[in-house]
Design a protein around this nucleic acid. Structure first.
Lengths: 221, 221, 221, 221
DNA sequence: AATGAATGAGAATTCATTCAT
DNA sequence: TATGAATGAATTCTCATTCAT
């Protein structure tokens, strides 16, 4: 009930406006580094240059910070990819190439990669986060790609494949490349090499792994 | 709030030998369901049919349970896949097809899928787990596939691609298919459909997405 | 979260003098409603139409507000009851009746009842409040009533009873009536009915509960 | 995540059975002494000879301790008073005298007095406690007294008064006596003197304050 | 005079781990 | 072996109080 303090260094009082974002930035770093559960609110505060109590001026709970993090990340992503590819009429391989390169660029930015990583880790505890991300991001982006494939098939650019499943064949290799690097530190001998990965992958994706003249037509059975 | 038990009939007193495994089984369920941090040792004990204290007879700490879990999972996996594909000399597409189908089978078994899921979630907190898994599993399996591809190229079955990076193109789509289902509940309209996914993927993988007669040869960028 | 104000029209800028009283009013409401400990200074401020910081311009601490509350309530009370009854020489039953009715009137006013309620609740934490209230109120009022009774006895109006203890017999029933209503919500079927309570009580107080001709004289024990 | 301990003194491990009551005893002392809000769970634990954590083995929250306290106190009280007075047919003044002396005895026992004191203090925060006490104690005891009075009137022992309101005239003075002593430390010069209070009160209660031959019949305005 | 952002001590609650039985 | 009572460090969240503006 009493409160004694030594010489106080008043630190630096900043505008309240910027604070929530600073808290989110700090939290993102720490959640990625140690996970949600292992991160103390005080750590977040300290990294954001605030006191523990101040964090609670901006977020009512630790969980709200996590939610705020995902919410903040969602807004800009959702609006982008759509515009470019939506109703492209020409060779879809061009757009697919662009999409993959754009994806690679995003995954190369640690701050952007952090959000999906976070969601992947924390789904079991906060399924609503995954639902939100799915709703706001995946459910908007995936249909665009699917339509792109469908159009490509209809216009004779692509072979008749299942458009929905083919999304995995297009994007999966890039994702796995990133995941292996992130989770197990497995990279090609020359580093992350995402560009080489994409080149190699596009080659296979569009023309297949089989040698051109090679043996008889391949049939999985 | 009290719990007295009448004369206890020891039933089929299980061999003490089986206990550690029962603990691991219980722990695996719970770690997957709620994550390592959110799982209480008492929960594990209860699910394994033991008292909290008894768990500590078999594992010195909660962390040791996690480690034991990964260690147990590693042994059988590592020895399998190797034997079959190691020095196969014929069409590698056949082996690749087999490998993917075997992989799909494993990923379809929740108890087997659980371990990688667990590792993915808990890496930041326990990097040594990821290291162990990489050392014991990935570092043994991946070179085999890489060699398979290299041989396929050398023998004219496959086009000249980067064998290391091509692993992603082979396995990535399957992984992404599973991940999307697990994390976001995203599946094709007809369910998990891993078999259709593999068929669709193999078609693309070996023969490419491009329509056969279609436009001129495709070149990325 | 920001608050910019255009040209501020100061309206009826309240006299700063009134502020402490507004704070006390707000505090009284809240202390009664939720207790001292459960009331936040910010709540008081908000209800008083001030900012948290401004409260501290008028009171050095939360505790000081409580003290100020009691102090403010004490002044007017102490001076009143005394004058009327002090040296009354006639039938004391008349004065007692008046006193009880005045008491009932005060207890009927929530703002006046609030102070004793507050003191009752917070004694253990702030014994000095009780001491102050006793010194300033009870120690002034009780002797007056005691003297009234003593005079009544001396002058043959009342039977010989212990004047000090008899205060309880006079006032206790009214207090209990109020307490039961306040604490447990126990009232007669027709509501608070303080007037009927007082009538019923005065009847018993002056003439006794025993039927007039009834059995032999009653003797306790 | 690590836990180091110095030389440990294993203290005294007692039977778990007695513990909840020990916790309640400790809590009662402290709640009375400092109030619910100002009492720390650790204080309770220490006084009960346990560690903080152990308290939570028996009560899920601090609030549950308070509730347990009231619940424990209620059981024995409720069953007693009823039996004796229920259908008494003779002079009710005898029973009333007994009831008041029994009440006085209870109020003289600090452990028994503590519960109502606690309830009075904590009502605003925990209205359900008051409701429980009312339901289990007051609603059972008061009708008995009311019936006693009614019977007394019907049988000519008592004058026609309002039975419900008269309960206040009977019990109020004793309550006020106790309250004044407890809250303000106001007692007669010779100490608590509850017996003298009761004697004095019974005299007035049954025969009235008015001098027997005294002036004309008294009528409250 | 007034604001409200910021601080930090403090309290409730949880849970891995220990240990007497 | 097995139990579960007990411990106490750790963590989230609250709120009285301060102070730059």
């Amino acid at each position: 009930m009493e409160q004694r303090r030594a010489i106080r260094i008043p630190k630096f009082r900043r505008r309240a406006e910027a604070r929530p974002d600073e808290v989110l930035d700090a939290a993102l770093d720490l959640f990625i580094e140690k996970g949600f559960a292992a991160t103390r609110v005080e750590d977040i505060a300290r990294r954001a240059g605030l006191s523990k109590g101040a964090v609670y001026l901006y977020f009512p709970s630790k969980e709200a910070i996590l939610e705020g993090l995902v919410r903040r990340a969602i807004v800009p992503i959702a609006t982008q990819a759509l515009s470019s590819a939506e109703n492209y009429e020409g060779d879809p391989r061009l757009v697919i190439t662009m999409v993959l390169k754009m994806l690679a660029a995003k995954l190369n930015d640690p701050r952007l990669l952090a959000i999906p990583k976070l969601i992947v880790r924390e789904v079991p505890g906060f399924p609503e986060l995954a639902a939100m991300y799915r709703r706001e991001v995946l459910d908007k982006v995936m249909p665009v790609i699917e339509k792109l494939i469908r159009n490509g098939i209809d216009q004779g650019y692509l072979r008749p494949v299942d458009p929905h499943l083919t999304i995995r064949s297009i994007v999966g290799p890039v994702m796995l490349h990133v995941a292996m690097a992130e989770i197990f530190g497995i990279t090609p001998p020359d580093g992350f090499a995402i560009d080489r990965l994409i080149d190699n992958h596009l080659t296979i994706l569009f023309d297949g792994l089989s040698a051109p003249d090679g043996a008889k037509r391949w049939t999985s059975s």
